[in-house]
Design a protein around this nucleic acid. Structure first.
Lengths: 335, 335
DNA sequence: TTGTAGGCGTTATCAA
DNA sequence: TTGATAACGCCTACAA
């Protein structure tokens, strides 16, 4: 069915080797160049990547693995990563592991079985050892969003500590003293960092932390909903709440709507990640915005530099600045 | 580095052929079975998919191609498709074409160059001829969400006409006579269908349509925003507006917030696609919900049946029912 | 610059 | 049931 190099060779009267060399950027007489191009066009020749890969041991494919394809924060990063890789001749295989560590392992295996040349992933956190094995096999891995100490690979992430610090600082500066935070799951990297920023801001401004106001969710809509309710049910509820990812922000807003709580009079709110949310919610929502485009681009470029062996240095942690949008959802007690 | 069948053969003392046969489900003496399993485990043997693919001409991989990875309607379908395929031994390569027909072509080529065994895609609409060529090559293609007349392949989509009809009907029944609609781009399948439902409902209830109230957007946030504004600026504005996809619904809500329009007193609103939006917007938004899970599953199953040659019949159009949630955003003029 | 030939890891045919 | 062997389509010394 599909034409092979052999067919092209036959058509042109040249040898397979010559055609192959030309296809791979080698030097060929001008007239042969034209001839081969014609043959390729006429025969609709497409390289057989499997055969090539078998020979070269490279697939020119990268694996992208994220926790969920239903989380726009991740998919929009994927979109950027995929685009840059494609521009550089690499294609991507995108998988999600549905926040399931078992599945993360499986999909990782799958990617490897597809002989990806490199991997960009948002790790779950509980498969460090396994991922480290992959790294040791010599497959370049780039982490996004989360950092695992036991894995020696490049990382690209937002400056979570400062992101969180800035948000809390703005609340404190506006006179808030009881600030609730809805964190992610306890053992996850971003959770710890975002909580750290919360704590530091309190320390720096000498504001006491009430542990009842520090709750841990699951980074999903439902837990955001639940935790907001729980915060409001504390005997002395907070005057402001910081929600540390997009899904939980959604859940929090839902709960607020349901309870008919007035923003910002009854509660001030700062959310996370999705800039569009700011304009959907009324009054407009204050938000910590991660540079998703930059994160994706950075990760892709790092992977490429590893694949090209341009970058042989030891793994680096790349932190990108976040942006804080303060809108109507934050009340000021100071005039 | 990686162990091959040859290594396994050597380890077990059997021949390559025997090991290969066993791996592919062939009959082997019980003791050899055990032996081979041991070898595989000890040597950490993994099949080389490229070599296998070269030989079998099958990659056990499906291509998934969608307009945008930043549209949760599509990605959530992808998530379901991918999962079902994986359960059946197929992996997926996910791409987006950023709503760009040129890119759609390129990515299609890319998928084919990756030798995918089948393709599930949301077509843009302007590459019919090209896609039909793919179909004629014998690669099973399943369309999602949109139907192209010139391409002979299976299609899975929501019952757009009735979805739209039902929404408009509910508005009319509640006494609305001037109903605006924000459609998608003019030449797109879903646009036509959703508009058709709008028209039919008007006809059936003998309500005149004011053409000024029928606007066409781009299925993106920005156009939703713009079209809502334009509708409100009509001399005699509508009392209700139906927005026909998720992104434009977002944009419409933004515009409404910005203009400080009161829902449902000043305008009734029915949106599309994203069920979470219903609870984020206040007062709660009425919404047409597509069965994304079912759509994905159906498409995956159809593709599998084609790949297994179980289904050799002619292509079919599969319509799935939508759901209409009427919430607070719709005002009733009838008591 | 071009061509010859060997091999990448697997499957499949055909004998044994 | 098992094994020897010829492809699959491509790349790459090496030789011409």
């Amino acid at each position: 069915m599909a034409a092979t190099i052999k067919d092209v060779a036959k058509y042109t009267g040249l040898s397979i080797a010559t055609v192959s060399k030309y296809i791979n950027g080698g030097r060929v007489l001008e007239k042969n160049k034209v001839l081969i191009d014609e043959a390729i066009r006429v025969l609709d020749f497409k390289i057989n990547e499997m055969a090539r890969g078998l020979k070269t041991n490279r697939s020119m494919t990268a694996g992208i693995l994220i926790p969920s394809l239903e989380n726009i924060f991740f998919t929009s990063i994927v979109s950027n990563v995929e685009n840059i890789l494609l521009q550089n001749g690499y294609s991507s295989i995108v998988c999600d592991y549905r926040e399931n560590p078992e599945l993360e392992k499986e999909k990782l295996d799958f990617l490897i079985s597809k002989m990806v040349d490199g991997i960009i992933m948002v790790p779950h956190g509980s498969n460090s050892a396994y991922i480290q094995q992959v790294v040791e096999k010599g497959i370049p891995v780039v982490f996004i969003d989360r950092h695992l100490k036991d894995v020696h690979c490049d990382v690209v992430l937002a400056d979570n500590i400062n992101a969180s610090y800035d948000a809390i600082e703005q609340l404190i500066v506006r006179g808030h003293k009881r600030i609730g935070i809805i964190c992610g799951p306890k053992n996850i990297f971003t959770t710890e960092e975002r909580l750290k920023g919360y704590i530091r801001a309190h320390e720096d401004y000498a504001v006491d932390i009430d542990k009842k106001l520090v709750l841990f969710g699951n980074y999903d809509v439902e837990s955001g909903y639940r935790m907001l309710n729980r915060l409001m049910d504390v005997k002395k509820p907070p005057t402001a709440i910081f929600v540390t990812n997009y899904e939980m922000t959604l859940g929090a807003v839902m709960a607020i709507n349901e309870r008919n709580i007035k923003i910002p009079d009854q509660i001030s709110l700062i959310g996370f990640d999705n800039i569009q949310l700011a304009r959907i919610v009324k009054p407009s929502l204050s938000i910590v915005v991660q540079p998703m485009k930059e994160i994706g681009e950075k990760a892709a470029k790092i992977l490429l530099s590893r694949l090209n062996k341009e970058n042989q240095g030891s793994p680096a942690v790349n932190r990108l600045k976040t942006e804080l949008l303060i809108k109507e959802s934050v009340k000021s007690f100071i005039d």
